[in-house]
Write a protein that binds this DNA or RNA. Structure first.
Lengths: 338, 338
DNA sequence: CCTCGTCGTCGAAGCGCTTCGACGATCGGC
DNA sequence: GCCGATCGTCGAAGCGCTTCGACGACGAGG
C-alpha cells in the first residue's frame, strides 16, 4: 500500500503538498496538482483512514443504530437504512451499523473510541434511556422519531398527527361520518414509541374538529387480533363506513376478513392505510394510503447530521408533512347514507 | 477524552504498560494491572480507534456488503445482517455497512483505505465481477452464496440442492408421486444468483432418483404470476398432489388461489415451502417448510472471517444442511390415490 | 555463589496523515 | 520602482497508540 510519502516522492513534492492537493485547503498550482494527481492514480494511493482520523479528528463515518430484532416493520427499517447509507455516501461518509440492543454502552463505545463523527438512531422510545447518554457525547446525533424530552437533539420524523388529520379529512370529504381506527398492536404502545400516540392524538383532535363519530382500538397481530379488533369497533359504533388502518401487518388479514364477511371495499367500507407505498399497492385492492416516507426521513437525517458536523444551524424538530395518495379503497358516500 | 498517557500517569506507569494491560501481550503483575484498570475506569478511557488502527494495522471492523434495494427478500437480508452484526460484536468487531451498488469500487475504497479487516458479501451472482477484485485485496473475504468460480475465497450458504432433495424425499415418503415446483421469479434466474439453479438441479436429480413425475416453473410476482404458474403446472402434469414452493412472495397468493379454487391444503394438495421459519408460520395454514437459516449462515460467515483473520484454516465451501420442519401443509396420501 | 532465564516494566520509534508556521516568489497599488 | 499582500510550497510537529529492544530484579540450577 503506497503512502502519502510515496506519492510525494513520485510527484517530486513534499507530503504536505499532496495533502493539500487532496483536501484543497491551500492553493496549489495547476501544474503541481496535475503531477500529484497523476502520481496518486499511478500508485493507486488511498489515504489510510486510521491515520487520517488520528490526524484530523474526523472519521467520515456515521453510526446508524437500528432495531435489528426480526420485527414487524422490517421493510420500513430497511428503507431507512438504505436511505441513510446512500445519503451518507453522497457526503463521502460511510455507515457503521449498530444494533439497538447494544444500548447506551454501544453508543458510548463507538463515540468515545472516536469511530464515528455523528450518530443516527431509530426506534426511539418515549423516555429513551439513550438520550441522556447522547447528550454527553461530543458527537452530534440525529433521531428518527420523536421522544419526549429531546431538547438539544435533532429529530426527524413523519408528522403522524398531521397524517391522522389528513386521513380523517379525506374520509370526511368523501362524506364519511362514522369511522374506526385500527391502531397498532398494544405491544407498540407498550414499547412507548411515540408515533402511535401522536397518530392517535391527531386522530381524536381531527375527529372532534370535524364532528365525526369515531372509535379507536389497538389491534393484536394475526387474524384473530384483527377479527376481535374489528368486532370491538363494530360493537362500539355501528354503521361504520370507513376505517383508518395504522397497522401494517393488520392490513392483509383485515382485507381477508372483510372479504370473508362480505363487506366490500370500497363499496361497503372505505379504507385509508398508513404504510409504505409498496405495501399499499401490494394488496389485492390498491389502498388509498398515507405514505411512510422512510427514504425522505433517512436522507433528511443524514443531511441534518452533516449540517451539525460543519456547524451549520439546524431545525431541531423536523416533522415531514404527510401525503395521501388516492387509490381504490375509498369511495364517496351517497348522501342517503350520511 | 483521556489518552493512554493520562491513564499511565494516573496509574503511575508508562504508556506501554497500559497498552500491555489492555492487550495482554506481555505479563503484567496483578497489582499493576489492578491500578491501571482502576485508572482506566476512573477516567473513562477508551482507546482511539484510529490511532489503534494506525499503530496495529487492525481496525476491528468488518465490511458487510448488502443488497439494499427494496427487494422481495428484505426479511431474509435483515436476518443476515442481524446475525452478522451480532456475531461480529461477539468477536469484538464492528460492522461497516456497504450497499451492493457501490460495486467493485466500494470494496476497493474501504479495503485500500484500511477501514476494515475483512469483508462479507451477500447476494453474489454467478459470474460476479467483484470476485476478481476481492482476490486482489489484502483483506480476506467471505461470501454468502456460491458463485461459479470462487477459488480461494470462502463461501457459506444453505445447501439448496440438498434442500430440494429433502423436500422431494419428504413428499415421496408421504406417498406423493406427482409434484410441481413453483420456482423463483424469472428475474431471479436472470440475476444469476446461483441458489435458484442449485435448487432446481437438486430437484431434478431427486425427481429422477425417486422416479417421480415432476414439473417445474418459475413464477412471476403477484397474484397473476401465481395463477399462471399454477395453470402451467397443472397443464403440464395432471393429478398434482403436491407442490414445492421455492418462492417466498408467491406463498401468500398461492394459498389464496388454492383456497379460492377449492383445493384444500393439505387435503387436496400438499405443500413444502422453502422460506424462513417465521414466514412459514405466519401463513393461514402452518406450512411444512425447509428453513433458510439466515442466522446460522450469517454467524458462520463471521466465524469464518475471524478464522481467516487469525490465520487459521477454513473450509472454503461450507454448505449448511437443510432441515425440514413438519407442520400442517403435508399429508400422507392414501394408497388409492397413488 | 554465580549464571542464566524469566518476569515486569520502561523508553523510544514509528504507523500515515494533517496542519501550522515559515519562506521565497510574484504581483498589484501608488 | 518599492512595499506589502498573496500565492505556492516545504518542513516539522504531533495526533494516540502498539511494539520492539533493553534492562533491572529475582528465582532456580549447577
Amino acid at each position: 500500500m503506497p503512502t502519502i510519502n510515496d506519492v510525494a516522492k513520485a510527484a517530486g513534492v513534499s507530503p504536505s503538498t499532496v495533502s493539500y492537493v487532496l483536501s484543497g485547503r491551500r492553493p496549489i498550482s495547476a501544474e503541481t496538482r496535475a503531477r500529484v494527481q497523476a502520481a496518486i492514480a499511478e500508485l493507486g494511493f488511498h489515504p489510510h483512514a486510521g491515520a487520517r482520523a488520528l490526524a484530523s479528528s474526523k472519521t467520515n463515518v456515521i453510526a446508524l443504530v437500528a432495531p435489528l430484532r426480526v420485527d414487524v416493520n422490517v421493510p420500513v427499517i430497511m428503507q431507512f437504512a438504505t436511505a441513510v447509507v446512500t445519503a451518507a455516501r453522497s457526503y463521502n461518509h460511510d455507515v457503521l451499523l449498530l444494533t439497538k440492543d447494544e444500548g447506551t454502552a454501544g453508543l458510548e463505545r463507538v463515540a468515545h473510541s472516536t469511530m464515528v463523527d455523528a450518530l443516527i438512531l431509530m426506534d426511539l422510545e418515549r423516555d429513551d434511556l439513550r438520550i441522556p447518554a447522547l447528550r454527553r457525547l461530543k458527537q452530534p446525533s440525529v433521531l428518527i422519531g420523536l421522544p419526549q424530552d429531546h431538547t438539544g437533539i435533532a429529530c426527524v420524523d413523519l408528522d403522524f398527527g398531521a397524517a391522522a388529520r389528513e386521513a380523517l379529512a379525506h374520509l370526511a370529504g368523501h362524506g364519511h361520518r362514522r369511522i374506526g381506527l385500527v391502531g397498532p398492536s398494544p405491544a407498540v404502545y407498550k414499547r412507548q414509541t411515540t408515533y402511535a400516540d401522536r397518530f392517535l392524538t391527531g386522530f381524536l383532535e381531527a375527529s372532534a374538529e370535524l364532528s365525526l363519530r369515531t372509535v379507536t382500538h389497538p389491534c393484536e397481530p394475526g387474524a384473530e387480533g384483527v377479527r376481535s379488533c374489528l368486532a370491538d369497533l363494530d360493537a362500539e359504533l355501528d354503521g361504520l363506513t370507513a376505517l383508518v388502518v395504522h397497522n401494517e401487518e393488520a392490513l392483509r388479514p383485515l382485507l381477508d376478513l372483510l372479504h370473508a364477511t362480505g363487506r366490500r371495499v370500497p363499496d361497503d367500507i372505505s379504507i385509508v392505510a398508513v404504510c409504505p407505498r409498496d405495501v399499499a399497492t401490494a394488496m389485492p385492492i390498491q389502498l388509498t394510503s398515507i405514505d411512510i416516507p422512510a427514504h425522505d426521513v433517512g436522507t433528511l437525517a443524514v443531511e441534518t447530521a452533516m449540517r451539525l458536523l460543519d456547524g451549520r444551524r439546524v431545525e431541531y424538530t423536523r416533522l415531514l408533512a404527510p401525503s395521501l395518495v388516492e387509490r381504490d379503497s375509498c369511495r364517496e358516500i351517497s348522501t342517503s347514507h350520511r
